[in-house]
Structure formats: C-alpha cells, structure tokens
Design a protein around this nucleic acid. Structure first.
Lengths: 265, 265
DNA sequence: TCTGCACCCTCTCCCCGGGGGAGGGTCCAG
DNA sequence: CTGGACCCTCCCCCGGGGAGAGGGTGCAGA
C-alpha cells in the first residue's frame, strides 16, 4: 500500500492532481481510511495513472478520460482515442488556416472588393433550419446540407444559407440552409420556406471559409462608407464549393447583406 | 460611428467579447459616451479586430495580443508572432510524442525491465543547481548543461542530474546537473559539489524522454515489489544522449532511485 | 410628445484543470 | 512521548470566455 506522496513520486502526478482525480472518480485509491481520510494506492495502479497522464497531455477532458478508462473493450477504447486524435487533427488544420490568414492580415495589402447592390425577389425553396450555437455551425451545416441533397432531386440553383446576426453577436442564433427547386418537398427536417425579398449588398469571397470574416469586414466597411445600415440575416450563396471542385482556390461564396439606405445626416 | 452591436456584426466578435477587449485595453472604442457608457466604434477598427480574432484563434494570451498590437514596427510584430508560432510548433511535437507513447501504453505489452541494486560511493563533481518549476525543467536543463560543457574541459564520465522528489509531488523542487571531472572548477553558476554515497535501484531508459515516466513507474513497481522504500532525490545519468548521436533510438538514460530496505511486515 | 422595444450598461456567478495557501489532524522514528 | 513529515479539507486564484439579472438609453412610429 502506497501513500499518496509515494504514489505521486512513482507516477510523476502531483499530490493535488491525484486528489482531484480521486474526487472526479478517475482514479480511485485502492483503499481510503474512513477514519482519517488517508488515501492508499496500489502499485498496480501505476499504469492507469500513466494512461491518464498521457490523455491529459493530449487535452482530453476529464469526463472523456473517464469514459476511455471505463470502457473495458480495447476496441471501444481505441475508437474513443482515435476520435479525440481526429479532433486534434482538425484543430491543427484550423490553426494552420489561422496562421495563413494572420500572415495575410498583417501584410498591409490593398485587396479592393467589388460590392454591388442588388434587389432579390422573394423565392420559395427547400430548407432546413434550426437554432444553432456558433461553435456547432460547421457540423450542423454538413448534416443539414447532406439531408437537403438527399431530398432535393432537381435543384434549380446554387445552395445557400441565412445566418441570423445573433449568431455572431450572442454566439447562437437561427440558421437556415436551402436549395432552390421547383416544388420544394417536405421530408424529415426539409420543408418549404419562402425567403422574403431584400435589397442586398453583395460581394464574393474567394477560397476557403477560414478568413471569410475578413471579407465580411470589408463588405461591412463598404456598407458603412455608403451610408447603409444592416437589416436582417446575412445570406450566403455557395456558387462554387467543395461539391464542385476539390481546389479551395476555385471556391466562390457570395455574401449578401440586407441593407437599407440611411438618410444623410 | 458604429454601436457595439453593429461592430459585432461586422467583425463576428461577440458583444461580450468586445466589451472584455475594451476592459483589457486591447481594442478601445473610438468614442465612449461618458454619460451613458455606450461604446462607439469606427469602421477603421475592423482590421484590428480581425487581427485580434486571428491571434486568439492561435491561443495567443490577451497580454501578448496587446504587445503585438502595440508594437508599431512590423518587424517586431512579425518576430512576436513567429515566437508564438514556435511555441505552437513545439507543443505540437509534444502532442505527437504523447500520441506515440499513449499507443504504446494501451497496447498490453510485457516490456520487462532489468533493475539492479548498486551502491555508489560519494563523488565530487562540477555542478549547476537551482530550485526550478516542473514546467521549466527542460529549458533550465538546456542552459545549465551548456554552461557545464563550456566550463568543464576534461570530463571523466557521463553527465547526470539529481531531481528532488518535490519536483514531481509539488511541481517545483531542487534540481542539480553535473559533470564528473578531476578538479571541479568554480565559474559562473558552476561549482564543486560532493554527491553523497547511496544505494540505488538502477535501470536504463531507452530512447526519448517523452515516456520516461513509464520507466519510472516500472522501476517504482520493482522497488515496491522488492520491499524497498524511496529515500532522496532521483539520479539520472545520461549515458548516451543527443550530444552523442542524433538517433533517439540509441539514447540511454540510467535512472537510479535511492532506496533502503524495509523490514518485512 | 409619448411609448414600446431593441439596444446597451454593469454586476455577479459559472466553466475547466489546475496551483497556492490556511488550518488542523495523523503517522512514525528517535 | 514528541517533533516533524505527511495527509486531510476548504477556499481563493488564474484565463477567456458564457449566462443571466437588473436597470438605463436611443429612436421610430403612433
């Protein structure tokens, strides 16, 4: 039987951390003296402690660590670990994208932007909509668009989306993705929706979406400079996307910001 | 002049976050109404907001973000950013190592370990020592060993280190690295130290240090199984290291744990 | 000019995975 | 038996936000 200090020396986990892992149910001491509260560990628990240590180095949240340890089947365990590694990988991708975008931002570049005002009429489309958290938008979008593709057999135009301003202001808001088609079906989450007419300030974002906020910013500056105010959700139209070409450089996303003219002050 | 909500829509930074950035002095609104406290931003501040957004995506701490924004010189700025990217890179290396080590840990492998008891005599060496935080050990070690190498011209054996148990239990403790040599010099941080005699449970760790804690754990289990108790700081001896060969697979680190025999219960 | 509502303000509390320290009980060797 | 090392619990702190309470403002339409 090892005291917490001895076990700490053997595992290189601090005493405090061991106590927290006990409280969290991650690593129960082999024995706890119910009179004094002293924790006593077994030498056989060292490997488990080391697995926890490794998982924490990989930033696996404590509840996930517990799930991994609790699953007795090596297959399930491997799957859970692989799952987290997948997340690490995609995070790395985002980091790389942010680095590239940051470099572009810090380079004082002119990058003029073509913006046009265009009045779009009301149109009825096949849509999927929901209230979504900002961090979950990408995953939600993938699912919603897949369902749309499965249901809409003969689209009559590029797909698009409407994004509530609250999504950016508060971190969550209403999101709607659609495909235009002649007779919008109703199936599962897919249902017909009539998008209202609007006057839009429109520009096109080229390439991946990692730095689409820069294009938003430029569009916003144009809107402000031209004495317009924002009214209603942003509209994106996916003119050329991953479904059309694997080359991100060829992707084209149209951004339309509903505006109305402000009286000159 | 843009209200905080409008600016939020233009930058995709949440209203709350913008307020925090104001409080932190990161992004001052162009005007603050001193009667109502209302914040008003200028469209020209959009690029700055986006740079902050990117830096935060890269997990740059807010104070560092401020330093980067405050430095008017693009060179300094680029250096600060490169600095952080360097840190990201080394973190990635550690992540990769942890993944490899985790795979090894989860594979139920026997991996027996040769452990021997050996009595080492007292010896006087050239040493550098300090109280160090656990997270800083690697950096401290690099500096201390470089200084030792510069001062000790004719070493009489492999370098080594003594690591206080508190380093692992509390996260900080006394650390000493040394080179044995005939007449230990005194220069800068380098000074003669007499390492006391000790009885050591000794084993050898093969390869990189990323999973040296596993070897520690196995050594610890052996110590416990053989009814020995730990007494005093761990000793490492760098038999083969990066200075000898660039191939990590050939590295050999001897781990010696001071022990004393426990009376059989 | 009034009123309603969207907007904005500050304040406090919560999250995670730890670290720091206070204050007090326990173990064990000399 | 005693002193010191060891262990316990409890509370506060960090950073970068999110959630919500409670109350003041700006402005457009009636």
């Amino acid at each position: 039987m090892l005291s917490i200090g001895e076990f700490s020396r053997l595992t290189h986990l601090s005493v405090r951390t061991l106590r927290r892992y006990h409280d969290a149910g991650l690593l129960e001491p082999a024995t706890v003296d119910h009179a004094t509260g002293y924790r006593y560990y077994d030498a056989e628990q060292i490997p488990a402690a080391q697995v926890i240590h490794r998982l924490r180095q990989l930033d696996v949240p404590l509840p996930d660590v517990e799930r991994i340890l609790r699953s007795p089947d090596p297959g399930t365990r491997a799957a859970l670990v692989a799952d987290h590694l997948q997340r690490l990988e995609s995070e790395l991708d985002r980091t790389r994208a942010a680095v590239v975008s940051l470099r572009r931002l810090l380079r004082p570049e002119p990058a003029p932007l073509d913006v046009e005002l265009s009045a779009v009429p009301a149109v009825t489309v096949a849509a999927v909509e929901d209230d979504v958290h900002h961090d979950d938008v990408l995953a939600w979008y993938a699912g919603a668009m897949a369902e749309l593709d499965a249901v809409v057999s003969e689209p009559s135009g590029a797909p698009g989306g409407l994004y509530d301003n609250a999504l950016f202001e508060d971190g969550h808001g209403h999101v709607l993705v659609y495909r235009p088609t002649a007779n919008p079906p109703r199936s599962g989450r897919v249902h017909p929706v009539t998008l209202p007419a609007a006057e839009l300030a429109v520009t096109v974002h080229v390439g991946e979406h990692d730095d689409i906020d820069v294009t938003y910013g430029q569009l916003g500056r144009w809107v402000v400079a031209n004495a317009l105010a924002v009214a209603g959700p942003v509209r994106e139209t996916y003119l050329v996307g991953p479904r059309d070409t694997p080359h991100p450089a060829e992707w084209r996303t149209e951004i339309g910001w509903p505006v109305f003219r402000v009286a000159p002050r």
